[in-house]
Design a protein around this nucleic acid. Structure first.
Length: 785
RNA sequence: GGGUGCUUAGCUCAGUUGGCAGAGCAUUCGGUUUACAUCCGAAAGGUCGUAGGUUCAAGCCCUACAGCACCCACCA
């Protein structure tokens, strides 16, 4: 058998070989002709800006991959595409950082060129890694969010929502990043706790001083009103009075609102244009005037007076100095407080008055919560995150960004009356700056002058279309209809409030449907000490090194250890264990090869099975049931554990030892054939390379299927199932013996000795066993000999 | 402030519907001439976060509390 099984398994060489084999034979292609049920996966398109790939990426993408391979063998026609998210702010930020660019100092077209170049490299990095890991994506079904198809779908989505009245354009204070100089959505924010000071500043009413506490003293020139709680006796006298603004020569009215907390600071609040959400609320409620002192870059304008030209930090320092000089700064308290920053650049956000496009979400909160209840969540508790996000929403989804590299809005405006002119669906995708509107006169005022929209869409406005982008990768319309809604959305927990939420919003508005049936939420990969893996900490091993040292199967083995939704520590020992398992599988198979050479499985044959054969087939059958059930519930970790136990502890350590003296028996060859093939199939979703290797060497000729990964998933065989009574009769004590746990007994027994002298009715020699077990067995079988 | 999850052997973690506390790694000891980049067997190692409760029986169910992680809210 030497020529069939070499002494060693060279995984580096063989993994490459099987990758080429799968590619050449199109093993993972979606089948356009098939009538089998489709299992479609809305694969997360990674940001190509995540250039530093590590175990965390491997983990989250492997999890969906295990399930997909299982479903493929279960007989589903797998639609497993891959996308790359390469438009929008994340990409722009990545390029800006890498080349140290300033958006205002580079031409739009040069900038876009750089973005395209970088995204190409980034996408290739991902593709190389996924390929080497054996991720069974159909690489003929790929998309990038900046390509024509995605632009077309997201522009269609916009126009459809426009027609349905689900988007609107409005000028109002929006979340604004002064660094990126763009509007943002609520989901783009991150919390940051900062050490700050609460400054008590003297305002005066009728020449009497009233200190007001604020963390934003630089916004004094933007102050438009003072507020107090209507129950607060200290300030009753301020009713209908005006307060003089310190350092700036104007006054503002005093108002009362129950929302003011009398216990905070002095119980007086200055309301500005606009320091926070409460300011905006009062601005709307009390119809306050606007005093915009910041420009879009976060610098003070003319209205800022002495602060003109300064940035926020400098302005804060200057105004505190000036206040101190003028004796207007009563005191300062050091406080920790939470500010909102832009998650892409860490800059504290401001509010700027600007005309933006919004998708309506606030009015649909209830329906969106209902949709969340109908979705199958794995794990179930992740639904709470979705719900708490919706409950806390304060803004509709702002989708316009004042940026370059993204999908353009397919609209023009009438220069005279402002009428919105949407593009025609048949003309998509298009850039309104480059083509003329579909009308020659404004339908409202007959004007002939139009202005194209220059803003681009939020990147999520495109990626949230993924469930209806991916069917477009198939030509046949009937098949497209079967791909949506998708079967599975796998994704990480931190984008529940963005990708998942937005996708559900879109599918709701467009089709009143859920975009997918199941959602599978993965956790984070952590380093060995439990810290988040990051480039800055350098706390990870490069995937290329892991692949070279341990092989793809071994890394995948580690990845199965991650429970859905929980973070999972990287553990080199687990990777090593995976490598040992691969070796063990290879060696055990090499051993079996000696028996299986030339063996033809004939189901009609009646083999004379020995008790240990019955037993191992029984165990095998049990494991098939367990593993199948586990995969159905996306519990690949449990599947792997059950399988390890069967293969290593039961099949190798016991069964193979027992049958060594029966090399020439047909029954043994039959049982070995069934066991090994089934074990390979069960391991196939997790360890695709080694299982294929062994399948090709030992089983391909008989089984005919070109690849193990297209073989049928094992089905339980009731003929192999032994009643507890029979197991007991056989005397192996393997299964439940009057409530004695299976494993516990099996582990303690010394099978080699037991079997050497075995005949069905022989009394067991109890001296072979340990004391505890002797007692247990004595109860079971009467007195010892 | 509200919520979710977690807390089990030195380490990393399993523990299905309540029924004699588990695996791997690490440690110690023994064995190994033929499938084994070793492998096999055994030992040792635990007040299952704390305190109550339900039950014949609780790691598991209930209540309270503590610590850790994350989500949401607060943001003058």
């Amino acid at each position: 058998m030497k020529e069939i099984f070499p002494k060693k398994y060279d995984f580096n060489k063989q993994e490459k070989h099987w990758l080429a084999f799968w590619k050449k034979n199109k093993i993972y292609r979606f089948d356009n002709q098939s009538s089998r049920p489709i299992y479609s996966v809305d694969t997360p398109p990674p940001y190509v800006s995540a250039a530093h790939l590590h175990a965390g990426h491997i983990m989250s993408y492997s999890q969906a991959e295990f399930v997909v391979r299982y479903k493929r063998m279960k007989g589903f026609n797998i639609f497993y595409p891959m996308g790359f998210d390469d438009n929008g702010l994340p990409t722009e930020r990545f390029v800006e950082k890498k080349y140290n660019l300033d958006k205002s100092k580079i031409s739009r077209s040069d900038f876009i060129k750089l973005c395209l170049k970088e995204t190409k490299t980034g996408a290739q990095n991902y593709r190389d890694l996924w390929t080497s890991l054996g991720i069974s994506v159909d690489w003929t079904k790929i998309y990038s969010t900046i390509n024509a198809l995605c632009q077309k779908v997201s522009q269609w989505s916009f126009i459809d929502l426009f027609r349905k009245g689900k988007v609107y354009r409005q000028e109002e204070p929006v979340l604004w990043c002064p660094f990126c100089q763009s509007a943002l959505a609520q989901a783009d924010l991150e919390d940051e706790t900062v050490n700050s000071s609460l400054n008590y500043i003297s305002f005066s009413v009728d020449n009497k001083k009233y200190p007001i506490a604020t963390t934003r003293p630089e916004l004094i020139p933007a102050c438009v009103a003072i507020f107090a709680n209507p129950q607060d006796q200290r300030y009753f006298s301020l009713k209908n009075k005006k307060a003089a603004i310190p350092l700036f020569d104007y006054s503002v009215p005093v108002y009362f609102s129950p929302e003011v907390d009398p216990k905070f600071g002095t119980g007086l609040v200055m309301v500005c244009t606009w320091g926070d959400f409460e300011d905006i609320k009062k601005f709307k409620e009390f119809k306050l005037p606007i005093r915009e002192v910041l420009n879009q870059a976060g610098e003070f304008n003319d209205l800022g007076g002495r602060l003109k030209g300064l940035g926020i930090t400098a302005a804060r320092k200057k105004i505190l100095d000036d206040l101190l000089k003028e004796n207007l700064l009563v005191r300062q308290e050091k406080i920790k407080h939470v500010i909102n920053t832009h998650e892409r650049c860490g800059t504290p956000v401001e509010f700027v008055l600007a005309k933006q496009w919004f998708i309506k979400v606030l009015e649909s909160k209830k329906e969106l919560l209902e949709k969340g209840k109908k979705l199958n969540w794995y794990p179930g508790h992740m639904r709470h995150r979705y719900e708490s996000w919706i409950k806390g929403l304060k803004w509709d989804w702002c989708i316009s960004r004042q940026r370059y590299y993204g999908v353009p809005f397919p609209v023009w405006y009438c220069q005279d009356c402002g009428e919105v002119i949407p593009a025609l669906e048949k003309d998509l995708p298009l850039n309104p700056a480059e083509v003329k509107p579909p009308v020659s006169n404004c339908p409202n005022c007959r004007s002939v002058r139009f202005i194209p929209e220059k803003d681009v869409m939020d990147t999520w406005a495109t990626s949230s279309c993924s469930p209806f982008i991916i069917p477009e990768l198939v030509k046949n319309k009937k098949i497209r209809a079967k791909i949506f809604p998708n079967s599975l959305r796998p994704q990480a927990f931190e984008i529940i409030r963005t990708w998942l939420f937005y996708t559900i919003v879109k599918a709701h508005h467009h089709f009143n449907k859920l975009p997918f049936k199941d959602v599978m939420i993965s956790g984070h990969g952590l380093d060995e000490k439990g810290k988040k893996i990051s480039k800055r900490l350098g706390n990870y091993i490069k995937p290329s090194i892991l692949l070279k040292e341990y092989g793809a199967d071994a890394i995948r083995y580690w990845a199965t250890g991650a429970t859905l939704g929980s973070s999972h520590r990287f553990n080199l020992k687990e990777v090593e264990k995976g490598k040992y398992l691969v070796t063990k599988l290879f060696n055990a198979s090499r051993f079996c090869a000696n028996y299986l050479s030339g063996f033809k499985s004939r189901p009609e044959d009646n083999y004379r099975l020995e008790p240990e054969d019955d037993w191992i087939l029984h165990e095998l059958n049990q494991t098939v049931k367990e593993v199948t059930l586990a995969f159905e519930k996306y519990e690949y970790a449990k599947a792997r554990n059950d399988l390890d136990k069967l293969f290593w502890a039961t099949f190798c350590d016991y069964y193979l030892e027992m049958i060594k003296h029966r090399a020439d028996e047909a029954s043994v060859r039959y049982v070995l054939y069934r066991c090994l093939l089934t074990i390979l199939k069960l391991y196939a979703p997790i360890l695709p390379f080694i299982t294929e290797e062994i399948y090709q060497r030992l089983f391909r000729e008989n089984e005919k299927k070109i690849s193990l990964h297209l073989a049928d998933w094992p089905r339980p065989n009731e003929n192999w199932q032994l009643a507890p009574k029979d197991l007991k009769e056989i005397g192996y004590f393997i299964s439940e013996i009057d409530g004695i746990r299976k494993e516990k007994v099996a582990r303690k027994l010394r099978f080699k000795e037991l079997l050497t002298g075995y005949t069905p009715r022989t009394k067991v020699n109890l001296t072979l066993f340990g004391k505890k077990l002797q007692e247990m067995l004595a109860v079971e079988f009467g007195e010892a000999e």
